[in-house]
């Protein structure tokens, strides 16, 4: 029983296919690390998996209520405190306690500080702590370690390992080594869409008219 599976998936940005013929499945406890040069479509793939955009071809098989997405932006409100920011997302996702998530990312001491007074790395840690309060099984992470120092990367890896240990799963687009030997690597380069190949369904305006 897999938490997330994709079959013959193709994703597009700006009406052009980026990645196609993608097949993988993720069982509980597994992590998948996406690799590939910039502009290949890692972010687009993650947004498609998250349901923010529709796949051009193929399908994403999963329960949308098991997905938690974390993009480049952390979704923090500068006027709210760390605890309030996290508490909001906790309430939206069904009320998981905020304390353990704050502790996991070493934010407990900053709980009362307004988010606009945090450093870039601290904001990122708060953004990642949000994942823990969603209570969702599949984490879709887009460059989660940007602006984190080595110690914080270690914290995050520990949180991720704990999540996988509880039967969760994760798809991570990252260029650095997270220290997760159990994670599978998926290099997207071979799946790069070939321009000019006849498609049965155009990805958008551009392909329809090319």
């Amino acid at each position: 029983m897999s938490l997330l599976a994709v079959r013959d998936l193709a994703v597009a940005r700006g009406g052009l296919r980026l990645v196609e013929a993608l097949d993988f499945a993720l069982a509980p406890g597994q992590a998948l690390v996406l690799r590939g040069p910039n502009g290949l479509g890692k972010t687009t793939l993650l947004r498609t998996l998250a349901g923010l955009q529709r796949p051009v071809a193929g399908e994403v098989i999963c329960d949308p209520d098991t997905l938690a997405y974390a993009g480049h932006a952390d979704g923090l409100k500068p006027a709210l405190s760390v605890a309030e920011n996290l508490g909001f997302w906790s309430a939206v996702f069904g009320g998981a306690p905020v304390g353990p998530a704050l502790a996991a990312m070493n934010l407990t001491e900053l709980a009362a500080r307004p988010a606009h007074m945090l450093s870039a790395g601290q904001k990122r840690r708060l953004g990642l702590a949000r994942l823990a309060v969603t209570g969702r099984a599949v984490w879709l992470l887009d460059e989660p370690t940007v602006s984190l120092d080595a110690a914080s990367v270690g914290l995050f890896a520990a949180m991720l390992r704990g999540h996988l240990g509880q039967g969760g799963a994760a798809v991570i687009a990252t260029h650095i080594d997270l220290g997760l030997p159990e994670a599978r690597l998926l290099d997207l380069t071979p799946y790069r869409a070939m321009p000019g190949r006849q498609a049965d369904r155009p990805a958008g305006f551009n392909e329809a008219f090319a």
Partner: peptide
């Protein structure tokens, strides 16, 4: 909400 990414997160939230 769009600028700081909250809108993406709200769209994938259970609401």
């Amino acid at each position: 909400d769009h600028e700081d990414g909250s809108l993406d997160l709200l769209a994938t939230a259970p609401l």
